[in-house]
Design a binder for these strands. Structure first.
Length: 505
RNA sequence: GGGCGCGUAGCUCAAUGGCAGAGCAGCGGCCUUUUAAGCCGUUGGUUGAGGGUUCGAUCCCCUCCGCGCUCACCA
């Protein structure tokens, strides 16, 4: 570890501490409560009229120190919050005051015992009678000072360089409490989703991440290799095919929350690994799933924020059911003045799009062209929570046809702020039809190259035993958290976003 | 992968071809109710790396590394 000047000074302090008999990294602590509990206890004691008897031993990280000669103020921070420490020569004596000044720096974890009091300015504080180092910090935390002006917290010179924040997330978290809050919220969101699904009789399961055949979505997989099996394996790109196998096995309602991996580009809303929620609900269809989606998101809003109206990028979003529903074909008529039913073939649609000056990949499937139109004309306009309903069959090989319309499937996607949040459909459960669809998608019975999705014969086998009719659902948790925490980049809701390894020496 | 931009002290930022600076942090003092504490003094730099132009480069040019935004890719 290469040390800069500040770090060398702190290492010398470690040596000084040891020389004078103080352990900089003791094994035990004597902490009796969190800072928040101590403050709460003091306030309760005040109400009861006997605050002068309250003592505590508190632990935390030194975040601010104000030395004032014969006294000193400091703030320590733990997972529950902050409290002010009040050091005074009256209680401690000259030698202990000096020891505090000599050995302790911002960023150190310390323990302090004493009496809870209110200082002259009214802040609940610990009047320190004894203190010890819990863990000496060598590297100074990035300087961050908060000033309260008219009730607003003004931040001075905080760690803000995104590269450093992501590479050293520990420092980012240690210094930027609003970053910590995002991940607390994220945990609360996931917890609420589990509560909601559990309460509706869904069984949480875990399916393989390493898979011999990937599927359930259109994406390039990551490939890995199992040495003993002498077999290449793929990191899953979705949970879908395994979860639906479970409905064959008799689990009528299953869900999984976990990581998907897609070997594709990174953007503000894409990360190569991301957290997905999928559930499958036997005897339901996409209409029921739509309603459940609305209720589920509302439940998350209620239990995490206590409100269903949240601001994203300055816009108030209303997550109260029901969401707006727009028919895919109708939305294109309204937003782009294009009726796709007038262009029944890919060729006709392509020709029309080219005539509009759009860049079109020649020979693209009709469904893909429609998806392109949606992205261009419709999706950016879907700001309030909206379901887009009824998708082209040829981009939805696992979804069931709309009755009486062989070119359209029962599928919806949920959009908020122009971003796709979830994707769901009435699941195709006809094994012969499913096989046909796979073949239409150009799949071979043999595993081909990475680009080609191999036929999953075992999935067809499962379906051939009889698969209950069901609605299925998938949602990107990272995106949901982005929306709920007003973050514009997916990295802000990932603890350790991927960054290229640095090549410097 | 393409385009645009950025990289200067531990952190946040100045400096534009002419001695590389400030605030905070640090270090040394003063200070018994502070909270961005204050006051006096002071240390700290391979200006991302390498090459080029120039009497002289943080600044101009080239290459590389990293990051950001954006476009493309993305059933």
């Amino acid at each position: 570890m290469e040390l800069n000047e500040l770090e060398r000074i702190r290492c010398e302090k470690i040596q000084q501490m040891r020389d004078s008999g103080f352990e900089p990294y003791p094994t035990r602590t004597e902490v009796t409560s969190t800072t928040a509990d101590a403050i709460k206890a003091f306030e309760n004691a005040e109400k009861a009229g006997n605050p002068e008897t309250l003592t505590a031993v508190l632990g935390g990280r030194l975040r601010a120190v104000r030395l004032m000669g014969k006294l000193a103020f400091a703030h320590i921070e733990d997972g529950s919050g902050r409290i002010q420490l009040f050091f005074r020569v009256n209680e401690l004596g000259e030698a202990e005051m000096q020891r505090f000044k000599d050995h302790f720096d911002l960023g150190d974890f310390i323990q302090a015992g004493g009496d809870l009091v209110r200082t002259r300015t009214g802040e609940v504080s610990l009047l320190v009678r004894n203190f010890k180092m819990l863990a000496k910090a060598i590297t100074p935390l990035p300087a961050a000072k908060d000033e309260v002006v008219d009730g607003q917290v003004v931040r001075h010179a905080t760690l803000s360089d995104p590269e450093t924040r992501y590479r050293q997330r520990y420092a980012d978290l240690a210094v930027n409490q609003e970053v910590r809050q995002i991940f607390r919220t994220r945990a609360a969101v996931v917890r609420a989703l589990r509560q909601f699904l559990d309460s509706r009789g869904f069984l949480e399961v875990e399916t393989p991440i390493l898979q011999p055949i990937y599927g359930g979505a259109a994406a390039k997989p990551f490939v890995t290799h199992h040495n003993q099996l002498k077999q290449d394996l793929y990191l899953r790109i979705s949970f879908e095919l395994y979860l639906k196998r479970l409905t064959v096995g008799g689990f009528d309602r299953v869900y999984e929350i976990g990581r998907d991996f897609r070997n594709e580009g990174v953007s503000y809303k894409h990360n190569p690994e991301f957290t997905q929620l999928e559930f499958y609900w036997a005897y339901a269809d996409y209409l029921k799933v739509m309603e459940m989606t609305e209720e589920m998101i509302a439940y998350v809003c209620d239990s995490v924020f206590g409100t269903r109206k949240l601001t994203y990028d300055g816009v108030e979003l209303d997550f109260n059911p029901p969401w707006q529903r727009v028919n895919l074909r109708q939305s294109l008529i309204e937003k782009a003045n294009i009726d796709i039913s007038l262009y029944p073939t890919a060729e006709a649609l392509e020709e029309m799009m080219v005539s509009l000056g759009m860049k079109v990949k020649p020979g693209e499937a009709r469904g893909k062209l429609i998806a392109q139109l949606l992205e261009e004309f419709v999706e950016p306009t879907l700001v309030q929570p909206t379901f887009m309903v009824d998708y082209p069959r040829d981009i939805s090989p696992l979804a069931k046809n709309l009755p009486g319309d062989p070119s359209t499937v029962e599928r919806f996607e949920g959009f908020v702020c122009g971003m796709e949040l979830c994707n769901a459909f009435t699941e195709l459960n006809d094994p012969l039809e499913q096989e046909k669809r796979f073949l239409e998608m150009g799949r071979d019975y043999k595993a081909g190259d990475e680009e080609q999705h191999p036929m999953d014969e075992d999935y067809l086998k499962a379906m051939s035993y009889g698969m209950p009719p069901q609605g299925g659902f998938g949602m990107g948790i990272d995106r949901l958290v982005m929306l709920l925490t007003d973050q514009k980049n997916i990295r802000e809701v990932l603890l350790f976003p991927p960054l290229r390894e640095r090549d410097d020496q």
